[in-house]
């Protein structure tokens, strides 16, 4: 279903990033264009079967978000390749794609479209989404005027009514108040049970232990381990305590 082969990602670092055109040409003439690279992922390979739920763990800056960007097709790996079958819905940041000046309703269409859905689909799901997010009275209010909890509820609701083949989530679970959290957890479980292949990044080990069928552990861009949820999580916990 998902194949990741020897993926390496190098970010570009240093002042090359904010050079002016003039400086660029001067340096080019002097042959002084130096690019420093930062290796955020080193030769990562793994595969995920259909219907599996893979968790990815690792300390901050270990490359979790980066691998998700590669899997979503947002970023091309510097080396290696990936293959994914089916429609991928990446939810890397709940708020991404929402526009502050536009209303809740307009935002649902915009964000839905950006997720790759067609008009019919959103028209069809619109009622469910607005009801789930508990924002019926706020339909025509600008997104900026919502409270931050309401914003994440809207974003979550929209994201959870998608029906992709592959769902990619970057620390976007558990938002809103207690009641909403319960509701959203239930909704997510339904979604996972429907046979969608999921990749989930989370810092909550409890969540990972509870939901994932296998776990990938990244550390400083390297694959530290992959396999059985319990074993990897235990190892990770020990590692974090020693640190």
């Amino acid at each position: 279903m998902i194949e990741v082969n020897n993926v390496t990602v190098n970010y570009i670092l240093g002042d090359i990033k904010d050079l002016s055109l003039k400086e660029f040409f001067i340096r080019k003439m002097k042959r002084e264009v130096i690019t420093r690279e930062f290796c955020a992922l080193k030769d990562i390979s793994f595969h995920v079967n259909k219907g599996e739920l893979l968790g990815i763990i690792g300390s901050n800056g270990s490359g979790k978000s980066t691998i998700l960007k590669v899997l979503s097709g947002i970023m091309q790996p510097s080396k290696g390749s990936i293959s994914i079958k089916g429609m991928v819905a990446p939810i890397l940041e709940l708020g991404a794609g929402f526009d502050g000046e536009m209303t809740v309703k307009e935002n649902i269409f915009l964000r839905g479209a950006l997720l790759g859905y067609q008009k019919e689909f959103i028209l069809d799901k619109y009622g469910d989404i607005i009801e789930f997010s508990e924002l019926k009275e706020f339909e025509n209010v600008a997104y900026n005027k919502l409270s931050s909890g309401m914003k994440s509820k809207l974003a979550f609701a929209l994201s959870s009514f998608v029906t992709p083949d592959v769902l990619i989530l970057d620390e976007v679970l558990s938002v809103g108040d207690m009641a909403f959290r319960k509701k959203s957890e239930k909704r997510m479980k339904e979604l996972f049970a429907s046979g969608v292949t999921t990749i989930l990044v989370s810092h909550s080990l409890n969540q990972i232990r509870e939901m994932c069928s296998s776990v990938l552990w990244l550390e400083k861009g390297e694959k530290k381990g992959m396999g059985n949820t319990k074993e990897i999580c235990d190892d990770y916990e020990k590692y974090m305590q020693k640190k």
Binding site: P90, E93, A96, G97, L114
Partner: peptide, 9 residues
């Protein structure tokens, strides 16, 4: 940029 870095369009 906020969208381009998070959504594959």
């Amino acid at each position: 940029s906020g969208i381009i870095t998070k959504v594959n369009t």
